[in-house]
Amino acid sequence: MTAIEVRGLRKAYKGHEVVRGIDLEVARGEVFALLGPNGAGKTTTTEILEGHRRRDGGEVSVLGADPGTAGSEWRARLGIVLQDADDAADLTVIEMVRHLAGFYPDPRPPAEVIELVGLTPKAKSRIRTLSGGQRRRLDVALGIVGRPELLFLDEPTTGFDPEARRLFWDLIRELAAEGTTILLTTHYLEEAEALADRLAVLAAGQIVAQGTPAALGGRASAGAKVSWREDGVLRTEQVPDPTPLIRKLVAADTDLSTLTVTRPTLEDTYLSLIGAHR
């Protein structure tokens, strides 16, 4: 079953096309990441899927409905963590979470949600006194309080310290393990690699690669770089499959204490993908 299906999505702002024909398919229960530099169209795409923005063209189905016309019953099945909800409200954290919880029939207990995002010490603080990272964590809390079946996370960990990011990753894994479909946009490649079942790289409004983190952009078949030191000299060979070479080295009784085998990292692949489309 598909949670999200997008065909030929287009969107322009004042004549400038920022989304130029995107096709996407996200299965139920999947964690899908949209990667891309600033201005690639990630947020616009996400906001169209959330029903926040109108599209200029293409077909979109989210949980079986068209976000452009779906009503509040449909919206209640989504959890949305906006990128720029810079809310300076005079409510406290617990009041805001409790307020949103009141919109849903079977919400997570507000105190539990606050604990899950690590904000318990700040529960009684006014929202405008929170730091940027703490506000993001509140956004995440508000996104999950209604137990959504589809969760949108638009750059959720911006401003998180490493510990908060780990806590967030654990939370996302737990949500995914129990069946929540998640669409994540992120700048952080290690985040996409750690969380996503599949990902798509967006550059200049188009998808330039799509696949599992391990296979993205031909990464799995990109071969490996084998290096070792022989008689004090650094030797490096680029091979499609390192196995025969290493076997040969072992057979020749070469000293392999300095052997390294490296494949292109997700970052290498990503940079070469978006570099080619600038």
Partner: peptide, 12 residues
Amino acid sequence: MSGVFAPAPGRA
């Protein structure tokens, strides 16, 4: 499955 993380969507 119906753990604390399981979805239970809907609108009040």
